[in-house]
């Protein structure tokens, strides 16, 4: 990465989560993965009612409780205790994944190690370990109507995570719809990757230089809208 780019400020985790949450439409059923995705539950746009789903069998739970205050029998899929709220319901694991596979989940947000230009996703094999955890990621990637990936645009060493072809084992092929990173918002379309938004201070050329496949710059490409 050039010194010029290294000097540029990237979005922090909270801001990436804030941008992800702008995708939540009124009435959506949404599943949030561990990490940046879960932070998005703090930024539901005003006036929209969103129902959160967690793999461990709950729909409609509230915010994460302060540390040490929650009920261990009421947790999200990351094991964090959450608050109950009216309308919430519990169900078994087979029911939970019937909801995932059956097309009742409007949006799934998760992290990734790599996304290819076709929208292939690699995110289950912890890369340094040769063993991974599939967990619910494959079901969510196959089942959600819209799959949003929230991740850093590059590895710590500056290598692109958005690649022509994934070198890590796939979670699911051609499943990603939108990629929100710390420098850009990119849509996966039939005609390839389309750059929709860039972080303040970043140009489409900057983003392209950190992305392996060629990006089509949307005619309306603009700074990431955060409000």
């Amino acid at each position: 990465m050039s010194d010029n780019l290294q000097a540029k400020e990237k979005l922090d985790r909270q801001t990436v989560a804030l941008r992800v949450a702008k995708e939540f439409q009124d009435g959506n059923v949404v599943n949030l993965g561990i990490g940046i995705p879960m932070l998005a539950s703090n930024f539901i746009p005003a006036g929209r009612e969103v129902i959160f789903h967690a793999e461990n069998g709950v729909l409609g739970f509230g915010e994460v409780t302060p540390s040490g205050e929650g009920d261990l029998d009421l947790v999200n899929a990351g094991g964090q205790t959450v608050k109950p709220q009216p309308g919430m319901c519990f169900f078994s694991h087979d029911e939970s994944f019937a909801i995932v596979r059956g097309g009742y989940l409007d949006i799934s947000v998760m992290g990734a190690y790599q996304v290819s230009e076709k929208g292939d996703l690699a995110n289950y094999m912890v890369p340094e370990r040769e063993v991974g955890t599939i967990g619910g990621a494959m079901d969510l990637a196959f089942g959600a109507k819209k799959l949003i990936i929230a991740m850093n645009h590059t590895t710590k060493d500056g290598e692109p995570r958005i690649v022509r072809k994934c070198s890590y084992l796939l979670t699911a092929p051609e499943c990603v719809d939108l990629i929100v990173t710390d420098i850009a918002v990119i849509e996966v379309t039939d005609r390839g990757l389309v750059l929709k938004e860039v972080a303040p201070g970043w140009t489409p050329e900057d983003v392209q230089s950190l992305t392996e496949p060629t990006l089509t710059v949307d005619p309306d490409c603009h700074d990431i809208e955060l409000v």
Binding site: F97, R101, I134, G136, A137, D139
Partner: peptide
Amino acid sequence: EMVPQGTLAERIR
């Protein structure tokens, strides 16, 4: 034998 979570649930069911 690693199994996707929903598939594990459905194979058991």
